[in-house]
Structures are given as structure tokens and as C-alpha cells.
Write a protein that binds this DNA or RNA. Structure first.
Lengths: 155, 155
DNA sequence: CCCTAATCTTGAATGGTTCAACTTAACGAT
DNA sequence: ATCGTTAAGTTGAACCATTCAAGATTAGGG
């Protein structure tokens, strides 16, 4: 066996990265999951191959992100999360209560996302849109026990 | 003197918060600056009144944010920043190199910002848009010494 | 088969933010 | 004007995600 033929392996090789068991497992884990954080990814990786150090996971995720094989998102107040869907410029819905993340396609038809009315001289290359709200489960949950409403001015 | 009449003091009182020298200074500092981080705010506060603990600043910023008197933004990979412009839903331009932040008004005319094509059942209450790119200064800088371009595949 | 650079490992350090327990002072009521 | 309640502030330590450092391995082109 010269090299294992796998979608993930091919992707790594194509990006000029070395094909190691750890990195294949990392890419597979990220692609199989949805917006996983580093801890969860590390767990998934260890389920596939044996032990892999946390630092190796961090470093590999950096490399994969730089190579454009995975995308890193970081909703305010959360640890970084990674997803395998790259290339298309999609955005995210984040639940304020449970932190759940879902994908959303570009807001309006084309990419108005990339046209701030006044760029103040900035050379913009990406628009990062995060929609904050409550996921279906938390909506139902909050309806019963409104722990801390965001709209009430009256006592 | 029963209480000091100041825009900041009035705002605090109006929000049901106590008017203390520290909080007035914090609000004044945030309002006078542009997207300051906690460390900078703490410095500004200490220039106005004497010593104020870092924790007091954190707690006050939480309270002010909850009261809607300041807004907290947290571009991926940066510490939190605070701004005094609240109420209008504006967005931000962030420089990838130096971290500079500038305000931008809502992308397209009205608020399409708040209409993900498919909300996946989420109850969305806010759209957070961050435009990433290079500020004017860093654009000029990078043109001369391209430390690490983001677009070059050729060596 | 060999060599070099990329990758992985262990172990420690960093930095922003938060938690805990106690003291101080703002301000509505007396 | 004084008192009591409780928000606000203080000090000091703890947390957690992420990064840094230095040495051991190994993928893969030559």
C-alpha cells in the first residue's frame, strides 16, 4: 500500500499536505459532523484512530483551514467551531440559549453580503453574517419558563 | 448636590442602574472611544477617576450591555470590544491585519440583514454582519511588503 | 533506501474572562 | 438628615480555549 485512497486523503494530498492517519481522521470527523468544536473533533478523531494529542488537532485544523479544506467559525462567546462545507459563502444561525448552529444560504439572492454601502476604504474580501435567535427547541422551552426575556420593559 | 447631572449619569439612572463614579467614567469612555477593548476602557476610566478594578469594569460592561447602553462586539479571534452607538443596527468592517474596526450602515437599503432566506425554525432577533478585509493603511502597507497574501497560489 | 521538512508528542505558559467572599456606598424610605 | 437594603466595588484565585517550546517521528520525493 503506497497511500490510502480516500476522499479525505485525496483532499489532503491535493492541498499539498501530508496524508497522515490523524489528519485524515480530523477531516473525516469535521465533514461528518456539523459545526463541531475542537474538543468534539478530538473525541471523534480518537474514536477512529488511537490517541492524537490536542495540539496536533489544533495544528491540523489550522493547516486545513489555511488550505481551505475546512472553515472555521467563531460565534461571539463560543469556542471555535469547524465545518466541512467550504467554497460556498453561506452564513449561520446561532441559538442564544443552547448555542446550536445551523447553516443558512446567502440572505438575499446574489451576494449583497459583500457590499457594505460604505467600505470606508477597506478592501473587503468576505462578509460574515451571523443570525442570532432561538432554535425551535429553545423557543418551545422558553415559552414555558421565560428565564430572562429580551423584550420586556414593564415589571 | 444630590446627584451629578451628566448625560452618562442620566442614562444610568434611566436604566435603573446606580450612578457611581466608576460607571459614569466607563460609559463616558466607551462613548468617547471607538470599539475599545476592556483593557483600553479600564485605562480610560482610571484616567478619569482613580483606581477601578478590572472586575468592576467587566461587571459594569455586562450591566451596561444588558441595559442596552453599550453594545458588545467580538470579531472572531479578538477580545471583546464595546461601542456606545446602540439602537441602530449597524455592522462592522474589521481589518484582518491590524484589527481596526469601522462602522458601516446596514448593507442594503432597509434591513434585509434580518431576513435569512430560510430561518430553519429559528426565531431570529438580530443579524450580526462583519466585513473582513484590509483597512486603507494596511492595504498600502501590504502592497509593498506582502507578508502573507491571501490570494497567491503561485510561488 | 535516505534525507529533509512536515507532523506529532509532552508539558508548560498565556491571556481574556469569570467565580468567590467580603467590604463599601447609593439612594428610597423613615 | 439618618438607616437599611442591596447594588456595586475590591482583592485574589480559578478557568478554559488556545498557543508556545523543544524534542521525537515519519511521510514521501530523490
Amino acid at each position: 500500500m503506497t497511500t490510502t485512497p480516500t476522499p479525505a486523503a485525496d483532499a489532503l494530498r491535493g492541498a499539498g499536505l501530508r496524508v497522515t492517519a490523524a489528519r485524515v481522521a480530523i477531516l473525516d470527523t469535521v465533514r461528518a459532523g456539523h459545526h463541531l468544536d475542537v474538543e468534539t473533533i478530538t473525541g471523534g478523531v480518537r474514536d477512529r484512530v488511537g490517541h492524537v494529542s490536542t495540539q496536533a488537532v489544533y495544528e491540523a485544523l489550522h493547516a486545513l483551514t489555511a488550505a481551505g479544506l475546512v472553515r472555521r467559525i467563531e460565534p461571539a462567546g463560543s469556542p471555535a467551531r469547524f465545518e466541512g462545507r467550504v467554497g460556498d459563502n453561506h452564513h449561520h444561525l446561532v441559538c442564544r440559549r443552547c448555542g446550536a448552529v445551523e447553516d443558512v444560504d446567502c440572505a438575499v439572492g446574489h451576494a449583497p453580503c459583500l457590499d457594505p454601502s460604505d467600505a470606508a476604504g477597506f478592501l473587503v474580501d468576505e462578509a460574515d453574517v451571523t443570525y442570532w435567535g432561538l432554535c425551535p427547541a429553545c423557543r418551545a422551552d422558553t415559552a414555558h419558563s421565560p428565564s430572562k426575556g429580551a423584550g420586556g420593559t414593564a415589571p
